[in-house]
Design a protein around this nucleic acid. Sequence first.
DNA 1: TTGAAGCTGTCATATTTATGTCATGTTGGG
DNA 2: CCCAACATGACATAAATATGACAGCTTCAA
Lengths: 240, 240
Amino acid sequence: MNDKVEIMPKHRILIVDDEAAIRDMLSIALDAAGFNVLEAKDAQLAHASIIDNQPDLVLLDWMMPGTTGLELLRRLKRDELTAKIPIIMLTAKAEENSKIAGLDAGADDYIPKPFSPRELISRVNAVLRRIGREALQEPIVIGELIFDPLGHRVSIAGESINLGPTEYRLLQFFLTHQERVYSRGQILDYVWGGNVYLDERTVDVHIRRLRKAISVAGHENYVQTVRGAGYRFSAQLSNA
Amino acid sequence: MNDKVEIMPKHRILIVDDEAAIRDMLSIALDAAGFNVLEAKDAQLAHASIIDNQPDLVLLDWMMPGTTGLELLRRLKRDELTAKIPIIMLTAKAEENSKIAGLDAGADDYIPKPFSPRELISRVNAVLRRIGREALQEPIVIGELIFDPLGHRVSIAGESINLGPTEYRLLQFFLTHQERVYSRGQILDYVWGGNVYLDERTVDVHIRRLRKAISVAGHENYVQTVRGAGYRFSAQLSNA
DNA sequence: TTGAAGCTGTCATATTTATGTCATGTTGGG
DNA sequence: CCCAACATGACATAAATATGACAGCTTCAA
């Protein structure tokens, strides 16, 4: 799809799966898509490879003998050195539970098997793009709203805005996931991260704080309530 | 209580292979599994059949005289009308090259011969499930009406429409079940969910609310009353 | 170590919006 | 023309969300 022959060094992707057949299939697809592929057949080797090779992304099978994917994921996220490496979990069943646990533990995406190579590639690219943007720390600009991750600063029409840490992360989440509804549960997962057990109404309160903070002349409708569903950030201030 | 005998239309599957024996074998297996089977013996006929019959999935032989499977695959993926039809490639040898090229060109799966009918069926089902999942996420477009499930947003001619939760679900139901009459009882079952006991007239009221909401210039006749039977959603504004 | 300042999550309460029912007006077919 | 089926507007109630206050925690610096 994107054949800019970019001199950009190829991204390194580590595949962790105990089944050789699956590793092969993924490997071929990713190789064809221009990635540099590494493989590991269990969590031990995977961990070693991650330390040694610093891959740009890890595809991690959920179910593996011995240390499971989830355990490895947790271990990686605990260690500061590896915490930022994006992880995509592969799971055999579309179990809601594993999905939730995976996101909780900090996976960046989650692909239920079976999936098409095309889907895989597109998700990998999506995650890399997002990470890339975050790594570049490019400011996000929406009309007069400027979100500058580098300076950890937000401003509207030149006016600097004061946000608490949670509201900052909430805004960041919304800015990177616009035009789409998220339930309170999802927002808790994404913004508060892992294993928190909070009242969902807490989200309402932080939404309000965020709204209050960014409500400057004509900018009040970015964060929209979708009754019965959750919240949505939209750059189109279309709603009357 | 629930008489959804749901006449779920069978999936149409097109088999493209130059060898009659293989077509027969596939055809029998798929038919037994409850699919509607179409056949074509070369790329020409296959292309025509795809345009005419809009199959839900194509099983495409890699090696064929004349236009090869790969060429046909590429052609299908280039044309927007056919790009979304899932393709499963059948190849005689597990050649790495063909595998790569096939995946590259956008095949959804790849089955090396020989394979068992059971494996075939299971892969076909897997692909159809996945496509179904993905389709749920895609916006539904009917003329100027856009229904975006991810954004949980409905618009007509660019104007955002405000719907209550029930009207939203009602519209979603209609959009995924067009051109067919549903009784009030059925609508209650599908939209409100099984175990509610409500006055059937309630449906009338929500129909009215939905109609009101989406009644913008020239779009008033999507939801049609069928006296004595129920309601029907039709994209053809057939209003006599 | 202590105190001030700022954050957080929870609650109780206010406000807004959605829902189902009813009474009444319309319509269409026999 | 009449009746049954449907449309419509109003309304009480229920449900969801917004808001303001507050007490426990952290952080930071003196």
